[in-house]
């Protein structure tokens, strides 16, 4: 693969590098310079000594993350939810993208495309009001229906059993449009000649999907999944904090690293501890992505991310 890099060969790429320069500079400023601040996680920060002058304190700032018996629960929740989100959102997103792309009626197609993205426009706080309108124990629509059917009402915000499903549903409801649109764009980019050839060969719909559409979407799928894995130790704070209305009884199934950090540091926090939490999440995410990428590279170097 390695070509010998001669000046003549290299020279022809110079215009390409020039095209990249503005973006590379912006990324350097916006992302790389502030990364120096990671040192704060290992320091006892004092503003008068500055970021680099403050005293080192080893791993003290990380203590609060693991010093509690909840450490296991929150790490487990964060991981499992993210795995569930990746699977559910990708599957739903691909399925929706495929069938929306197949809709013939132009007007309906537009309607579907627009509507799946609508929830994406709402902030989590607002979504939490909507969810509460359904689940409220006193006033909620679901309990109103249960009452009218003569059944016992459910104490949604005290019973942690249903919450994994509620959160996965809300997350899919809000986020699936995003992934679906990317896949719709991906499907739009597939050469129609493939399908024409397949139809001539007598392939049915299902065969077209499994033999043409999905394989063509593999690069997009891998990209989206790898990027999600990178954030596997992070969680959408709004989803886990606002939607369950901060109810303590639900913590066994709703506490994640981000909500724990927020709750613990709500008073007396300090930037050392919060950046320690960030570093921990980043390091784990980084490791997992490197491993997954290596695996992808093994299977199909073509599709590896880098």
């Amino acid at each position: 693969m390695k070509q010998k890099l001669t000046w003549a060969h290299f020279k022809q790429f110079i215009p390409l590098y020039i095209m990249m320069v503005p973006s590379l500079v912006y990324i350097f400023i916006n992302n790389y310079i502030p990364m120096a601040g990671i040192v704060v996680a290992f320091k006892k920060y004092n503003v008068n000594d500055g970021m680099f002058g403050s005293a080192w304190c080893g791993l003290d700032n990380f203590q609060f993350l693991f010093g509690t018996s909840d450490a296991f629960v929150m790490i487990r929740n964060t991981l499992l939810y993210n795995v569930a989100f990746i699977i559910v959102n990708q599957c739903l997103g691909i399925a929706l993208a495929i069938i929306i792309s197949d809709v013939i009626n132009k007007g309906l197609k537009k309607l579907y495309q627009s509507s799946i993205l609508l929830p994406f426009l709402l902030s989590m706080v607002v979504v939490s009001y909507i969810v509460f309108a359904f689940l409220s124990q006193e006033n909620g629509m679901i309990n109103a229906v249960l009452k009218s059917m003569g059944k016992d009402i459910v104490y949604w915000y005290q019973d942690n059993g249903p919450w994994p499903f509620i959160l996965i549903f809300v997350n899919a409801w809000k986020g699936v449009g995003y992934g679906a649109l990317i896949y719709i764009a991906g499907i739009a980019g597939i050469d129609p000649a493939f399908y024409e050839a397949a139809e001539l060969d007598g392939a049915n719909k299902w065969q077209q999907i499994t033999k043409i559409t999905l394989p063509c979407l593999v690069p997009q799928i891998i990209t989206l999944v790898l990027m999600a894995i990178g954030r596997i130790f992070a969680s959408d704070f709004g989803l886990f904090y606002q939607i369950p209305q901060n109810s303590g009884a639900l913590f066994p199934t709703t506490q994640t690293i981000d909500t724990y950090v927020y709750r613990a540091l709500i008073q007396a926090g300090g930037i050392g501890r919060s950046s320690a939490a960030g570093v921990f999440q980043s390091v784990v995410g980084f490791t997992l992505v490197m491993i997954s990428n290596a695996v992808v590279r093994k299977i199909s170097a073509e599709n590896a991310m880098f």
Partner: peptide
């Protein structure tokens, strides 16, 4: 004792409301 205070804050947010509110 700031580390302990931080940890106790987290405990409070999980358990206290259920008890003091009587649910």
């Amino acid at each position: 004792v700031i580390n302990e205070v931080v940890a106790c804050n987290a405990v409070n947010s999980q358990y206290q409301a259920q008890i003091v509110r009587g649910v």
